[in-house]
Nucleic acid binder design. Sequence first.
RNA 1: CGGGGCGUGGCGCAGCCCGGUUAGCGCGCCUGCUUUGGGAGCAGGAAGUCGGAGGUUCGAAUCCUCUCGCCCCGACCA
Length: 569
Amino acid sequence: MRWSRALIPTHKEDPSHAETVSHKLMLRAGLIRRLTSGVYNYLPLGWRVVRKVEAIVREEMDRIGCQELLMPVISPSELWQETGRWNVYGKELWRVHDRNGREFALGPTHEEVITDIVRNEVRSYRQLPFTLYQIQTKFRDEIRPRFGVVRAREFIMKDAYSFHENDDSLSVTYDAMYDAYCRIFDRCELDYRPVEAATGAIGGSASHEFMVLCDTGESEVIVCECGYAATDERAEGLIATVMPPEEPLSAEPVDTPGMKTIEDVSLFLGMEPWRLIKTIVYVADGEPVVALIRGDRDVNEEKLAGLLGASMIEAAPPAVVEKVTGAPVGFAGPIGLSGVKLMVDNSVEPLVNAVVGGNAVDVHIRNVTPGRDFSVDGYCDIARIGKGDLCCKCGKTLDSFRGIEVSQVFKLGTKYSDSMKATFLNENGKAMPFVMGCYGLGVSRTVAAIIEQHSDEYGIMWPMSVAPFEVEILAVKFKNEKVREASEQLYDELRAAGMDVLLDDRHDSPGVKFKDADLIGVPVRVTIGERGLKEGTLEIKMRRTGEQRDVAIEEATAEIVKIVEEARA
RNA sequence: CGGGGCGUGGCGCAGCCCGGUUAGCGCGCCUGCUUUGGGAGCAGGAAGUCGGAGGUUCGAAUCCUCUCGCCCCGACCA
């Protein structure tokens, strides 16, 4: 490509509304342009990178025997009704209707559609297992689009779905997919960690997320030196006890006028927050549930939902709280509750002489001891675990890091095949539900993640494997006949050798070209100018290492081809 | 959705509090000449219904009301 003919609109200044490195650089280097909130145009340079990432994904999917197909973006609501996700998915599901008022979803993921295909086309266990995938534009009406392409409402995703006779077969594919993802992210030269994950709206029994390490990432990962790693939504752990040994005293009510929060009550009574027991009313799949946890900790709603087997959970609205506790929000406590399930976190067990809500206006109860003053069926782990807590595997202190979630894999089991009645005949002629796995990978997000990890103050530093161009020929003073001839010749030779080459043939000053070259981050820069030509040389400079050297013109093509081929993943 | 902020040529901003000629500045863009190894110089030029609607006023980018859009912080997820 000749720069003079290319649409590569670079900017000198940072865009005003971008915060993160990748967002700024994608805009400045002319990779993307925003169309509206969370929706982006991929300009030619950005699209080239997307295509390179896609190519790597395709190679690795095909390597493990997956087949590519393409499903529609639009799918009818009926399919989503079958699995219940038309309701469960919530506002994030982007809904549209046709001229007859019939409702459709813009696909956020395609379990329903793929299951529909397979239930119609696959009859026998002899056809199993297999894996189908597509690379396609997805839609999620995110509450808050953010960080450019990292959290967009329209984005590019690779989604794969595997179908099996049984769990063992699923595990084989799951592991193969896990390995394929490692190869993909290795080839993108990302520093990443696979971690245990919660299953969320997609569902299923086991899941991992691949996290790219990045301080501005939206996800928090809890890690232990023993190797345990999980998202903060998923992480299990132990909360260190801070309760000193104490003689239990008799429970008694105490006036707490207007004190509705843990902070209020602890200040008012002059007690540390951990001496309080936080009582929170939730509604899980329509049923009220009460959760108890130590006052200085938060409930992990994903874990709570998991233990309850609920698909939807949310904090109860005030009316429900009043109905359950008999008091307005702020005075809920476990004593005297009836007809409602009580979920008590492990952190509550060691407490003695704790403070709880009195289930009456402006009243709390102190000197409460769990098990004595209210009955507990059993303790469970519903706490949000964080840095400083103790590892559930080895007991050591946990650490954390932030990351960008670039992919997530799930063992779905029969969640979708059951609800959609997707079955095959096993060797005994019996109809069995398909055992399924699904495997998502955010392609456009991966591009942003690569930039987060590969840039400096001057711009992007692409890994060779995904660079929009592998070589940029920077012609200083393109007007000069000798410069032009040498540049054109090298350009032709490199292209003939199969290189992706960008020739900066613009008549701009050298400074502009050097700055732009650094900004768009092509890995190999070849500078051709009068100065070098006098000596019969040109300069090769590596964007990432800064390493540069002069090479004789006759040897240049071979030398550059060698550099590029060695660096290709 | 709650909280905070912002909408002024393509980009980045000033002007707004305290209303008053042709709405400025930097970058970019066009023409010409000179220049060309790290964002060149000179000369000339094009480009803005000041997000939109309504109102107050002799007069509104500026004040008031409504509205739309965008960004940031929290609850969702690849």
